[in-house]
Design a protein around this nucleic acid. Structure first.
Ligand SMILES: [Mg+2]
Length: 216
DNA sequence: GCGACAG
DNA sequence: ATCTTGTCGC
């Protein structure tokens, strides 16, 4: 594994990423996730499209792909971006914003999964991870909606968000064409009583359903 | 060298 | 991520 080369790619992605306010109006959002076979040889990437802001389901897509890269902390995007892009290529309508299951800017080289996917697609993306990877933070209060900034080199790269009272918070950071504050705002508005924003929660269920229908 | 370490 | 059943509670 040529990590030096992969690092250079990530540094390039980080340079290309943009963290300025959303430009276009958001009318359709998407959520994407990937489920794997027991031995991780096959992957079931999935995408759900929902109308914004009412989150009415518009479209669901899943694929069966072979996995060509191992999971290595800090390099997740090289494993999942190819799978996610294959799904996006088959969707009828291109979303205005995509929620991704992983980090965005809150990454050792500012190039998390949401950054990588967002730059390659040229679309706004938000990373919502279930666990931290990089940056400093304090755990937010226990009440719903509590937040605390994620600092990396003294800079705010995202927010820890208590998406459900008394439940482990999620780690929100921008991926591309959106600010950390907007990423937090859109994530909050996509919450519907569960730990993960609806687009991500539904994408996860869909990918698991696809795997179950194809294998045991 | 040791511990941490998205999915 | 996946492997697993019931069980407890913000
Ligand atoms: Mg995932």
């Amino acid at each position: 594994m040529d990590f030096e080369r992969l690092k250079r790619i990530q540094e390039d992605l980080a340079r290309k990423a943009c963290f300025r306010p959303l430009q276009r109006e958001i009318r359709v959002v998407a959520g994407m996730d990937v489920a794997y076979s027991r031995n991780s040889e096959r992957a079931y990437p999935a995408m759900v499209l929902m109308r914004w802001p009412d989150l009415e389901l518009l479209e669901e897509i899943t694929l069966l792909e072979s996995v060509n890269f191992p999971y290595i902390p800090g390099y997740l995007s090289f494993r999942e971006v190819p799978l996610l892009k294959a799904v996006v290529a088959r969707v009828a309508q291109r979303p205005d914003l995509i929620f991704v299951d992983g980090q965005g800017l809150a990454h050792p080289r500012r190039a998390g999964l949401a950054v990588h996917l967002g730059v390659e697609l040229g679309l706004p993306t938000i990373g919502c991870a279930k666990r931290p990877l990089a940056g400093e933070f304090v755990w937010p209060e226990e009440h719903f909606g509590a937040t605390s900034p994620i600092l990396f080199h003294k800079e705010v790269v995202g927010y820890v968000l208590r998406s459900r009272k008394g439940v482990k918070p999620i780690f929100v950071s921008p991926g591309n064409l959106i600010t950390p504050e907007e990423a937090l705002d859109y994530t909050l508005r996509a919450l519907k009583g569960f730990r993960l924003p609806e687009p991500l929660r539904k994408a996860h269920l869909l990918s698991v359903k696809a795997r179950k229908s194809h294998e045991g």
